[in-house]
Structure formats: C-alpha cells, structure tokens
Design a protein around this nucleic acid. Sequence first.
DNA 1: GCCAACGTTGGC
DNA 2: GCCAACGTTGGC
Length: 143
Amino acid sequence: MACWLFKSEPSTWSFQQQLDAGEKGTFWNGVRNHLAKKHMMAMKVGEKGFFYHSNEDKAIVGVVEVIKPYYPDHTDESGKFGMVDIRAVKPLQNKVPLARIKAEPRLSEMVLVNNSRLSVQPVSDAEWRVVLELAGEAEQDHN
DNA sequence: GCCAACGTTGGC
DNA sequence: GCCAACGTTGGC
C-alpha cells in the first residue's frame, strides 16, 4: 500500500478545514504540475497520506485518506490536470516539524527534504512509520 | 523580505 | 529542440 504526502499552505487550505469537511472529504484541486499529477493518478481509494503545512507551520500535522481516485479537475481550463478526493483521518498527537524531519537520518531521503516544492509526494513505508513514531502515534493498522 | 531552486515559456 | 529569461514556491 503506497503512502503519500499532501502539501498545502494553511492560509489557502488548512488541515483544520480538512477536518471540518468531515467524512465526505473534499477534492484536492489546483495541482498544475505533471509529477504531482502522476502521483495522484497512481493513488487508490483507501491509501493514506500525510498533510503538511508549508510556510507558516512547516510541519506534518495530520493523516488523510484517498476516497476518490483521479478524475478531471474542472477548474483547469487546459483540461490537462485532475484531482483526487481526500478526507481527514486524524490529527497527529504531535505535529512533526520540518526541522525534526531534517534532523532525522532515516528521513534524509524524503521528497519533502529534497524537493520541497512538489505539492503531492510519495512516502515510503519506512518513512511513514518513522514519521508516525516521531508524532507519538501508535503503529497504524496497514491493511 | 530575501533568495535559491525549480518549472514554464518563448525566441531562435 | 535548445536554452535564457521569467514567474512561483517555500525555507530561512
């Protein structure tokens, strides 16, 4: 099961807003990058992702789940890009700041560290577990 | 607020 | 099809 990371500026779309959106979730629109698109196309319903706040917070703050696979983004006039729907699963007990991630040798290969501008990123299973550990979360059930 | 890194655009 | 110029992003 693949894991992901969704990056957003909290002033544009915060994890709190994602939580408020509830079980039915929201679409993740506005992606205009081909690599990010490719990652979204690879997502399957039920896969988990981290929610990262860029700029103001600079921390992983929560866990989300893909609830609808890739479909066209009607807000994209060019028709080239699409989006997925996600819902909030839970906030992390302790949010994991970027500085903590950079200080962790096991996370030195994370895309967040090496290509922080990419808005949708893949996360390896090992990285997923390390971040949860840093967040003070018990081991997730991965089905 | 600055600037480095990256993606995109457009002239040739 | 190359590459310089430009705009945007995001960490600091």
